[in-house]
Structures are given as structure tokens and as C-alpha cells.
Amino acid sequence: MKTTMGHTVSVHAASHGNGKGTAAHIGKVVKNRYVLYFVSIVSLLVIWHFSAVIGESSKYMPTPAMVLTELWRIAHENLAGKNLLGHLWSSMHRVLIGFAIGSLVGVPLGLFMALNRYLNALVKPIFDLFKPMPPISWISLAILWFGIGEESKVFIIAIGAFVPALINSYNGIRLVDPALYDAIRMLGANRWQTMIEVTFPAGFPALFAGLQIALSVAWSCVLAAELVSARSGMGFLIILGMTMSNPAMILSGMVVIAITAYLITVVLSNVEKWVCPWKVELPQ
């Protein structure tokens, strides 16, 4: 905070004495969002740096520069047989397989449950029994069943992706505005045409939102599963940093994880704009 204040004060001092107009002008600069962002980032880095170099604390808290160097190192050196990209790909690979399985089971099941009351009455209660269990709590059973290899991780991810995929496709179809059904029936549609022209397109945005959630849950699940037991992957990398007492490695791993998660959201929201161009964007 100290540096923030210092910065603001110096701005004031530098342009003082130019009359009232400039004071208002400075007020505007101080309240300008981007100026504030800049101030915030700079002061964050400065505070971080200095808190890390005081005394012995760099054993626990590396400086920003150390994190960057570490990032450079793990990008080039092999850790447990793979460099950073290799580990990232291991995780991604698991995510993609688990996500594919979870959504390929979850979406159709959700659709059928929404369309058929009997199937719904049979499956929903069992699904509700399992729903409150976090996907990661399956890890011990998964390891008992599949060993500590790829399968147990894919299993956890698939369960994690399955739940939001099912819930959203189910709700998407069930919550279609009934007036739209009236409209299409007035145009002469039979049951099949109603399904093709209204049920699916009207349910699609919710279904897609479900897939978005499923993918980000899958990304969390793979990390959790790798933290518990793995020989590769981003989760393995940060837990390795922990066991090697190398906080710079943990933090650089976290940076890569955060960037990946961020990119996933950005890519998916662009895909959404492309596949659902009719969806109204909520003003932020």
C-alpha cells in the first residue's frame, strides 16, 4: 500500500500549482481505470519482491523474478522425463479423454431423461444420490479399481464432467418456453419436427454452458487426481515442487495452470458466440 500512496502523491506534486483545471484533471487521471490497474500491478510486484527478499523469507516466498527464471528452467529441463510442455500435454490428454467420456454419457442421458418421464423417474433418484459427492472423493475407489495409472485419473475426470453435462442438458430441455412449442405446433409440426426444430435448438445454449462447466471441472479434477498420485502432469509438477521444497516451482506451475484455465474459458466463450449467435450477451 505504501508504494501506491507514494505514486499518487508524486503525481500530485509534479503538477501542482497549475490552477483548478489541472486539479480536476489529476482527479480524473487518478480515477482512470487503466491508470489504477497499472498502479496496482506495479505495486503488487514491488510489494511481492520486497516481502520476498526480507530476511529468510525467500525460502518460502520466491521473488517474481525467481518465478520467471524457474518457469524458464522447467520449460527446458526435463523433470521426471518431461519438460513443462510435456507435463501440460499429459494433463490435457487426460482431460480430453475424461471430458469426452463424461459428456458423451452425460449429455444423451440428460436429453433422454428430459424427454422421457419414466427414464427420468428411474435414473434421477440414483443420480441425486451420487450428486453431492465431490468427484475427487472417488479417487480411492478409482485407484483400488484401476490402479494408479491413467485409467483412475480419466475415471475421476469423467465423473466430474458427467455431472454438469447431464444436469445442464436435462434442465436445458425441460425449461424450454412452452410457448415455443405452441408456435411450432401451429405451423403444423409433428412430434419429430418439434424435437428437431424447437426442443434441441432451444435447449442447446444450456447444454453448451454445461459443457463449458464440465471442461473447467475436468481441469480441476485432473489436477486433484495428479496431486494424489501421478508421475506426470501439471498437478504432479506442483506437488513435486512441494516435496522438493521449491516454492518457485510451485508458483510457476500455478501460473501455467491459471493461464491454461483462462485460455480454456476464452476459447470456449468464443466458440459459444460462433455456435449460438442468437444468444443475448448479458451486460457486465
Binding site: 410457448a179 415455443l180 411450432i184 401451429m186 403444423g188 426444430e197 442447446f204 449460438c276
Partner: peptide, 26 residues
């Protein structure tokens, strides 16, 4: 309901995923 009667609804009730053309030709 049937196509021999056309209905214009009190609340517009257009298909939001269809363009104007898509709605009219539905």
C-alpha cells in the same frame, strides 16, 4: 393445432435461434 390456422401470439414468441428469414420460412 394445425397449419390451416396461423397464430400471432400476444408475446411475440419468435424462435430466438432463427433469423427473421428462418422464422418466416419455418
Amino acid at each position: 393445432p394445425g397449419p390451416d390456422r396461423g397464430m400471432v401470439f400476444q408475446k411475440y414468441t419468435l424462435f430466438p435461434w432463427k433469423t427473421v428469414m428462418g422464422n418466416v420460412e419455418m
